[in-house]
Design a protein around this nucleic acid. Sequence first.
DNA 1: TTGAAAGCGTTACCAT
DNA 2: ATGGTAACGCTTTCAA
Lengths: 344, 344
Amino acid sequence: MRKARVRLRDVADKTGFSTNTVSLALRDSPRIPPATRELIRKVAADLDYFPNRIAQSLVSRQSMTIGLVLTDIRNPILTQVAQEIARALSESGYATLFATSDNTTDREIDAIRAFRGRQVDGILIYPTEHRDIEHVRSLRDQGYPVVSLVSDREKALDTVSVDEHLGARKISEHLVAIGRRRIALLDSAAPLGNTEKQEGYVEALTEAGLPPDPALCVAVPGHGIEDGYRATAALWARGGRPDAIFATTDSVALGVQRWCEDNDLAIPGDIAIAGFDDIEYARLSSVPISTVVYPVEQIARTAVERLIELIGVNGPLPPPAERLLDPKLIVRQSTAGTNAGAGH
Amino acid sequence: MRKARVRLRDVADKTGFSTNTVSLALRDSPRIPPATRELIRKVAADLDYFPNRIAQSLVSRQSMTIGLVLTDIRNPILTQVAQEIARALSESGYATLFATSDNTTDREIDAIRAFRGRQVDGILIYPTEHRDIEHVRSLRDQGYPVVSLVSDREKALDTVSVDEHLGARKISEHLVAIGRRRIALLDSAAPLGNTEKQEGYVEALTEAGLPPDPALCVAVPGHGIEDGYRATAALWARGGRPDAIFATTDSVALGVQRWCEDNDLAIPGDIAIAGFDDIEYARLSSVPISTVVYPVEQIARTAVERLIELIGVNGPLPPPAERLLDPKLIVRQSTAGTNAGAGH
DNA sequence: TTGAAAGCGTTACCAT
DNA sequence: ATGGTAACGCTTTCAA
């Protein structure tokens, strides 16, 4: 057996007080006179005592732990979200249990079960499937605090997320504004059930009197550079000849760029390229890519705030609230206006 | 109050058996006849019962949870490690508590304390400082299972990591082999106390009869592209004129590449560039960058395996073991040999 | 085949 | 000012 943990009991024995008094003293109860308190603290420190939070949890029925379920942390943005969330939670005294679903609803359900078994006080989730999320909604219906990092169509979940619809719209409008007419969409979100960006794109084009051309919309099966590269190749192969491409992710946009360079298309001369997320690699690419940014840290903080609020509620949960954060357009060289001059 | 959790007790009441019997039945005890067992299982399922692992932990003194402490998850490799570790752990029934230290030893210590309070069965850590890690070693000295993802100079910790020394050596030798003589080192690891790569580099150069030139070694303060860009600028500003640059990280290498392109240096003609880690962005960069790969998944699995092994040990921990995985050189266009022809 | 009771480490309540 | 006792939800030991 390895070195036994020091318990309240041990401190009690050593000081001659009861566990009760020790517990109180260590928690700064006014009922304990300063003298005794100091004595107890000292002994506790000597023994390197620290409370067993498992036992505390059993009593308080609060684990002070939340579960974070992401799909695939390789997306640099999700990564950053994860980190900010863990930080924000720890500042509020919560620990973060972490799991990835690998884009499988089954594993997502497993992770949720595992978390619940471990008595997490709430769950933060970036769901795999953006439409088929009954298993998440039912959590909330059971009175379980959940915050989704993806907007829920049915508004049945608390959500904190960037306004993807608006972001896509903004950047599509920008492409229109610089005079592009054949604007393609490389969509890695719709295949997973998230059509927000697609809708923003369609809306912008329609309002500009440019009926979206199905030949210019291609579904991208993943978020990688390579996926973008192949999708662009496919687009050309099938005869699409856009003068601009909006990729729903910066990584995908980087793939587009690579393909264009390999095929001697001038950027933005022959083709403008736009992405989403503002990852470092896109900002510092050979042709810096225009994109949409959003305050990741703020999303994380807001989501954590809301979750903690829900956890604190006594009685039935309040109606779900959706908080969409405003994204900002960043114009760079990849969409520098023909006559408008280069953006930064 | 929100909907109360279903307890063993509730299943017991509903079936008429004792909590004891229910507990046994649910855990497939041979002591319970199949008939009763099925009955109990059915009722438990109806009630959507699942065990409170907090209570279980209190009894078993095992939380079936481990703590993962990383520095900064933005490094794509650490990210991937995190994901693989979480996966491997969950396959063994462990949950992963996650924290980042933000490259601060203080926060690292905090995280460890928080984890211990939560009774994690072991800790996986990628330490901030590679030399000043007494706080980690002392954990182990207290009999606490710990596995470090960074090699410990003093060999006082169990370690599973890529052999950075060897990797750096391999790629430096490669640069020598393609005929480069003024090989610069852009080192983002040494400032954090990790000199493995530096040593591999020095060794390779020395053996080739090329005394390492201090004017060609620059400390990079971070792992970002921008850091690499600025470091390259600084190198030139101070008069260093290398014909090859080894950056200790692919991200840094991408920054080098950007600077070279901005300054009209041909790659690899004027200057060869090499990185480390094999991230997607480097592989699919405009000039694909030569690098060093290592089996991230295997590192994760091996680390988890070792940790679980340590957790399972009764009595004193075995002596610390260091497991270094063999890295592989990947030659790409950025170091295509002058006469040797381009690698893929 | 089943159940009662004790215990895991802590906190809350009620005494003294 | 301090301590005893019960309780949190479960497993284990022993008894019936």
